[in-house]
């Protein structure tokens, strides 16, 4: 019985999301069809990235232990950890949510919340999309915005870390 409840708990979000679709099917079937279509399109789009992320998780489980993570992204890591977190956030591909499992895994190994927050914030800085943004808003706007976003990512990391510590006390 305990195992059954654990399984329900593991799938609760998926169950709620599916129930929402069933509810919509009865009241707004066109929204249901559109939602399913978009879901499938997204799923096909992100599936390769999810596989890459799972491969990264496997490789970190295999080669990176708590000691290494602690040294590079732990309590005593220096400014280089910020630079690495910013760079990896900018360079990482795909939607932000596919990276949650890997980041949760790295946190279990000792990565500080601030670096996770910095990584997630910098997912918003996408070099490959900058030409499109320049087309709509001009190069000066894009340069200024990108500069402030990188600064804001560090502020975000500091805020997250401080508040996590305060709440933990």
């Amino acid at each position: 019985m305990k195992k059954f409840y654990q399984t329900i708990e593991d799938y609760i979000f998926l169950i709620i999301a599916s129930a929402l679709y069933i509810f919509i099917l009865f009241f707004k079937s066109d929204l249901f069809v559109g939602g399913i279509y978009s879901f499938w399109y997204l799923f096909v789009e992100v599936a390769p990235i999810i596989l890459v992320v799972f491969l990264c998780i496997f490789l970190t489980n295999l080669f990176i232990d708590e000691r290494k993570i602690g040294r590079y992204f732990g309590e005593r890591s220096g400014w280089s950890a910020w630079v690495i977190a910013i760079s990896l956030g900018i360079l990482s591909a795909g939607p932000v949510y596919v990276w949650y499992p890997l980041l949760a895994d790295l946190r279990d190994k000792g990565m500080k919340d601030s670096y996770i927050a910095v990584f997630l914030y910098n997912r918003a800085v996408k070099p490959q999309l900058l030409p499109m943004m320049i087309y709509y808003f001009g190069s000066l706007f894009v340069i200024v915005l990108t500069f402030y976003m990188i600064i804001a990512s560090v502020i975000n990391g500091v805020i997250v870390n401080k508040l996590m510590e305060v709440k933990a006390k």
Binding site: D10, Y11, F13, L14, I16, A17, S18, L20, Y21, I24, L31, G34, G35, I36, Y37, S38, F39, W40, L42, F43, V46, I50, F54, I57, F58, N61, Y97, V98, Y100, P101, A104, D105
Partner: peptide, 26 residues
């Protein structure tokens, strides 16, 4: 084993997120 356990835990949540985004995109 650790990776498969992580995948089993995270995959239903990721599919749930994709389902919700599918609706928001409408």
């Amino acid at each position: 084993k650790k990776t498969v356990s992580g995948i089993k835990k995270a995959l239903p949540d990721l599919v749930g997120v994709l389902l919700l985004i599918g609706l928001v995109l409408q």
